[in-house]
Structures are given as C-alpha cells and as structure tokens.
Design a protein around this nucleic acid. Structure first.
Length: 267
DNA sequence: ATGACGGATCTAATCCGA
C-alpha cells in the first residue's frame, strides 16, 4: 500500500487557503503537514480542506506567529503537541495515521529560524534554535513500536549542496557549522533516514525555499533546503518517490517555501 | 554593507521571518 506525505511551510494559512486547496487537488497526498499557519485554532480554515476529503485535521495554532497543522484523508489519533524548550510556542504536533492495517507516527516540526547573528550569547534566538535542535535528538524514530516520519520546516540546510553557495553561507544562520552539526546529530541519534537525499544525491543542488527579497527568485536561484522529510529505517526501506514542487514558488501570491512530497510503500 | 519582500497586529509602524 502506498502512502504519500507532504510538508509545506504555508506562511499564513488564512491568506493562502486557496493555494493549499490547489495543491491538494493537484497532488492529493494522504497527509499534508503545514507550518507557519499564523492563526489560532478557531481561526483555522478547515472547511475548504474537509470538502476536498481532508476531514481528519489536527491543529496546533497560536496568535500571529508559528503554528502547525496536519490534514489527512485517513484517520488520525494520539494527537499530541509537545512544548519544546518550554517556550510555550506552537512548533510541533504529533499524530498517528492509520492506513489499511498499518500505522505511521507523524511528527510535524517548525524549528526556530534563529535570528540574524549566529552567536547564542549575543542572540537569544540563536541559542533557542540550538537548544531546540539539541532536544530533538531525544526523539527516536522507532519509539513506541510505530515507525515514524519527522517532517517540516527545520530551518537548517545541512549539506553543502543544500545551499546556493556553501562558502558564502558558512556565517549565515541556517547553514553555520554549529547548526548543521546539531541537526545531523539529531538525525543520527534518532535513527532517522534523510529520505530527500536518498532520492537526490548529495552532489546535486536541492532547495525548498527561495527568499521573497530576490528581484527574480528563479533567475538568481539562491535557494536553501530548509524543509525535510526524515523516516524510520523500516519506512525508508519502502521509500519510492520524492517530489519538490518548485512551480509552487511561481504561483500567484506564493509562500517562500514549496511543498515537498514523499511516497512510501508500506508492507 | 545594506536592503531587497511579505505577513500579523490594538490600521500604523513595528516586530518577525531566514
């Protein structure tokens, strides 16, 4: 049985609900994980997505900033947000999806951006980001007996070809060595597989985000791979297909991130 | 070196993103 999961930092779900609907109609993933919904739970525009078959919805929002949600065509249970770093912000939501006889644990993450200065003493936001990623290392891909997927906007581009210029990005938050080491440690400690890089060799450029500030995002193509899909080894063994929906960056009124889809064969 | 854009908020200017 095939299972397709998508992740997308939508940068305000109220402003872009029609783009979400367009994407769901275009690709119809089983599950869509959204980040930066930027609204409270009672403001989440769930009805248009339910009409498209995504009747199972878990929302963990907050006012104005951050916020994550999971839309699913298949039943969700054990819905559980976790307050990472004890900050009280909405950056994570877990749920278990059931398909046929199989079950998959889902972890939707929005890792802190970390501010401008890559020094935890001078910049508390960077310290928060480092602590957040350090805490993520405690999340085991095989915990609880249900194989898990961890996906979302991790706000770190760990590999040299996850950024347009490794050399010029070494001091830029999202690609500094201390961040990439932290993320790689979380990947290894949790026993996760970076399935995007199973599909696309590390020697090739791979981006999921292009800044709003470029005059022409496509021409300059100064992207970063900030969005990720990690899977437990038993799920990764059935990994079949990756799609990074780059055309979505050119849609009218776009998010600065594009959807990432991963398809797995279960059993 | 700076600012380029775009979103949310006590709708005006300020904070935030990465």
């Amino acid at each position: 049985m095939a299972f397709t999961l998508a992740t997308w930092n939508i940068n305000s779900v109220r402003l872009r609900r029609e783009l979400v609907a367009k994407f769901l109609k275009l690709r119809s993933p089983d599950v869509l994980m959204l980040q930066e919904i930027k609204c409270q739970n009672d403001q989440f525009p769930g009805k248009p997505f339910a009409r498209l078959g995504y009747v199972h919805q878990a929302v963990h929002g907050q006012k104005g900033y951050h916020g994550v949600a999971i839309l699913s065509r298949l039943p969700l249970d054990d819905v559980s947000p976790r307050d990472w770093c004890g900050m009280g912000d909405s950056r994570h939501l877990a749920a278990t999806v059931t398909l046929g006889g199989g079950r998959v644990r889902l972890h939707n993450f929005y890792v802190p951006a970390g501010g401008d200065i890559p020094d935890p003493d001078a910049n508390p936001k960077f310290g928060h980001k480092l602590r957040f990623v350090a805490e993520m290392a405690s999340l085991d891909s095989r915990d609880g007996g249900i194989p898990a997927v961890l996906a979302g906007d991790l706000n770190i581009a760990p590999l040299e070809n996850d950024v347009w210029s490794h050399r010029q990005m070494l001091d830029v938050v999202s690609h500094t060595p201390v961040e990439t080491a932290g993320l790689t440690n979380a990947l290894r400690q949790g026993g996760w597989v970076d399935v995007m890089r199973e599909a696309v060799p590390e020697s090739e450029k791979l981006y999921t985000w292009w800044s709003y500030r470029a005059r022409d995002w496509q021409a300059s193509d100064r992207g970063r791979r900030l969005d990720h899909v990690w899977a437990a080894p038993e799920l990764a063994a059935g990994f079949r297909k990756l799609e990074v929906l780059k055309p979505a960056r050119g849609w009218s009124g776009p998010s600065d991130h594009v959807p990432v889809l991963a398809t797995f064969d279960l059993d």
